[in-house]
C-alpha cells in the first residue's frame, strides 16, 4: 500500500506519521508537498498534525485552500482512504470533506496528554482491527488547543444515525466537544478525521501501541 503524507508549511507531525506508516509491514509512505497537483497512484492519503500556515485566520483554513486540496478532494471522492490527524482533521473540516468545525478547547488551554477513547464504530476501514479486543477502549495521546468539535444538531443526528462517530472520549472529555466526539468519518466512510495521534502510539515503549491497529486496519 502506497501512502502519501502531505506536508504543508507548518506541519510538524509529518515525520512521525511518515515513520509510523513505514513502521507497518506492507505500507510504503512518501512525502508529498502541498504545492503538488496530483495524488495519483496512492492508496491512502495521510494529513498530518501541526500548525499549517501558523493557524492564521483559523486552524487549517489556509491549508484547506492549498493547491494539493483539489487532488485530495478528487481522491476522496473516488474512495481513496484519507486520514487527517489533529491539524489534519481541522483541514478536512475546513475544506468540507468532513462536516462540522473544530474550535477553541472549552477550557482555553492547550492540552497534551494521554486519553481513553471508545471505538464507537469498528466497521470502518480504519478501525476494523479493534474488533475482538477484550475491550474497544484505546489509549492515545492528544495535543491540541482547538479540538472542540462542534456541529449543528441536524448534523449530529446524521453522524449518529450513519455510524460516522468513530472515536469518543471515554470518561473525561478534555476539550468540550459535542457528544464527546474525538473522530468522525464522512458518510461514505473512507475519510476519517481525528484529534488523537495514533502515530504516537505505535509500540509499547512509546506508552501505547493502540495506534498501530489503526494503520494495520487501513492497510488491510
Amino acid at each position: 500500500m502506497r501512502c502519501a503524507v502531505i506536508v504543508f508549511p507548518g506541519s510538524n507531525c509529518d515525520y512521525d506519521l511518515y515513520k509510523a506508516a513505514n513502521y507497518i509491514e506492507g505500507i510504503q509512505a512518501e512525502y508529498v508537498w502541498y504545492t503538488s497537483k496530483s495524488l495519483d497512484g496512492f492508496d491512502a492519503i495521510l494529513v498530518p498534525g501541526g500548525f499549517s500556515y501558523g493557524d492564521a485566520l483559523r486552524a487549517g483554513a489556509l491549508a484547506a485552500r492549498a493547491p494539493i486540496l483539489k487532488a485530495l478532494q478528487r481522491a476522496a471522492d473516488s474512495g481513496t482512504r484519507v486520514l487527517g490527524i489533529c491539524n489534519g482533521f481541522q483541514i478536512l473540516t475546513e475544506c468540507g470533506l468532513l462536516p462540522g468545525a473544530l474550535h477553541r478547547n472549552s477550557g482555553l488551554r492547550f492540552i497534551c496528554r494521554t486519553v481513553n477513547l471508545e471505538v464507537s464504530n469498528t466497521a470502518t476501514p480504519f478501525t476494523s482491527g479493534y474488533v475482538g479486543r477484550t475491550s474497544t477502549h484505546v489509549r492515545l495521546e492528544i495535543a491540541h488547543g482547538e479540538g472542540n468539535y462542534t456541529c449543528d444538531s441536524d448534523t449530529l443526528h446524521k453522524l449518529e444515525d450513519n455510524g460516522q462517530i468513530v472515536f469518543r472520549y471515554s470518561g473525561d472529555n478534555p476539550n468540550g466537544s459535542v457528544a464527546n466526539i474525538a473522530g468522525i468519518t464522512n458518510e461514505a466512510g473512507n475519510v476519517l478525521g481525528m484529534m488523537p495521534h495514533p502515530e504516537r502510539a505505535m509500540a509499547d515503549w512509546m506508552g501505547s501501541s493502540d495506534g498501530r491497529i489503526l494503520f494495520e486496519s487501513m492497510r488491510d
Binding site: 485566520l57 473540516t93 468545525a101 462542534t150
Partner: peptide
Amino acid sequence: EALLVNSVI
C-alpha cells in the same frame, strides 16, 4: 464565503 468566514460556527 470562500475563506474569511467559516459558516459552520
